[in-house]
């Protein structure tokens, strides 16, 4: 727009450059400079120190030692080792043996045999029911991968619990220390501390953390105390507290774990009473094995020895404790 520019040009001020920068206040006195250096050093080293301190391995905040030993008597009326028994019973027996050791001597691992997984999603729903997970929260989805071209097709199912990484990237990012790795290798979240920032969700490469946004499965159904229809009278199941981490959690009224990040905890509350994680229990293909890798005679140790197992996204260096046989 030349005409406009012509109009503007006369009003352009003289080139600002010639104006000399004012002299006053531009320089720092020596004292100021020293102080600056001092402050900067203090600031930076303070920050470094904070980070360094927090990076240091803290003393475990979980109970360890003899207090954590659980004596779970062997029921006399079960088949026992050597007899023909469901692997679930064998794993449960080994679990009881592991629980007899202090927590720090247990190394829980899961071995998932994809050859046996029938893609039934029983584990997914079993976990949801066991932990009373709301819509949008899932600890163990099972993915389906279809490959090939007719008639040479392949379907593969991949159940994905939390990998209980030995180097869990989800832990250090938590700003409030609400999540940590226990002495038995299970990474848990204390929902009461978690502020719900979802940083850990972004940090987990496996998508194993999901957030509880406060939904209910019965949202959108008929409401009211109804005489004719069951209505609200039938919704009590969704408002029962759950047992995660051996505590009583009831979400009603935006209580934790609503608003929090949530994740698989290998069903610690079931281990505590000598029961297998729900997903292993309810696996109809018996594709999910669970046990203590520190026990060389355990089924999981056997499997890890016999098979070339793989872990997911090994290049990320997270060192999962969930192993797959494909």
């Amino acid at each position: 727009m030349p005409s406009e520019q012509n109009r503007d040009r006369p009003s352009l001020p003289p080139d600002p450059e010639p104006v000399a920068p004012p002299k006053t206040g531009t320089t720092m006195t020596r004292q100021e400079f020293v102080r600056t250096l001092g402050l900067a050093t203090a600031g930076v080293s303070g920050a470094v120190a904070l980070v360094a301190i927090s990076r240091r391995d803290r003393a475990p905040r979980d109970p360890v030692g003899p207090d954590t030993v659980r004596t779970l008597p062997e029921p006399a009326d079960l088949p026992g080792p050597g007899a023909e028994e469901d692997v679930l019973l064998r794993m449960q027996r080994e679990l009881r043996q592991a629980m007899a050791k202090p927590v720090e001597e247990r190394k829980w691992v899961m071995v998932i045999d994809q050859r046996k997984c029938v893609g039934c999603h029983a584990c997914t729903i079993g976990c949801i029911a066991e932990n009373k997970l709301p819509p949008g929260v899932v600890y163990r989805p099972v993915t389906t991968e279809e490959t090939g071209v007719f008639p040479n097709v392949r379907l593969q199912f991949l159940p994905r619990p939390c990998m209980q990484c030995e180097e869990p990237p989800c832990v250090p990012v938590c700003p409030v220390d609400a999540t940590w790795r226990r002495p038995d290798g299970i990474t848990i979240i204390d929902y009461d501390r978690c502020i719900g920032c979802r940083y850990c969700l972004t940090a987990c490469p496996y998508g194993a953390r999901t957030s509880d946004f406060g939904e209910y499965y019965t949202d959108g159904t008929v409401a009211g105390d109804g005489d004719v229809l069951a209505a609200d009278g039938a919704k009590a199941w969704e408002h029962q507290p759950n047992h995660e981490l051996g505590k009583r959690w009831n979400r009603t009224g935006h209580q934790s774990p609503m608003g929090n990040a949530r994740k698989c905890h290998f069903c610690l509350h079931r281990l505590e009473v000598g029961e297998l994680p729900m997903c292993a229990t309810t696996c109809i293909g018996r594709a999910t094995y669970f046990g203590d890798a520190n026990d060389p005679r355990s089924l999981v140790s056997e499997l890890l020895q016999q098979h070339q197992t793989r872990t997911l996204l090994p290049h990320l260096g997270t060192k999962p404790r969930v192993f797959y046989i494909a």
Partner: peptide, 20 residues
């Protein structure tokens, strides 16, 4: 203390019962 395995529908059965 021993649970057997069932399919996802079976586990969701309580929702058929508690259908509003």
């Amino acid at each position: 203390r021993v649970d057997g395995s069932i399919c996802p529908k079976g586990q969701a059965g309580l929702q058929s019962c508690y259908d509003p």
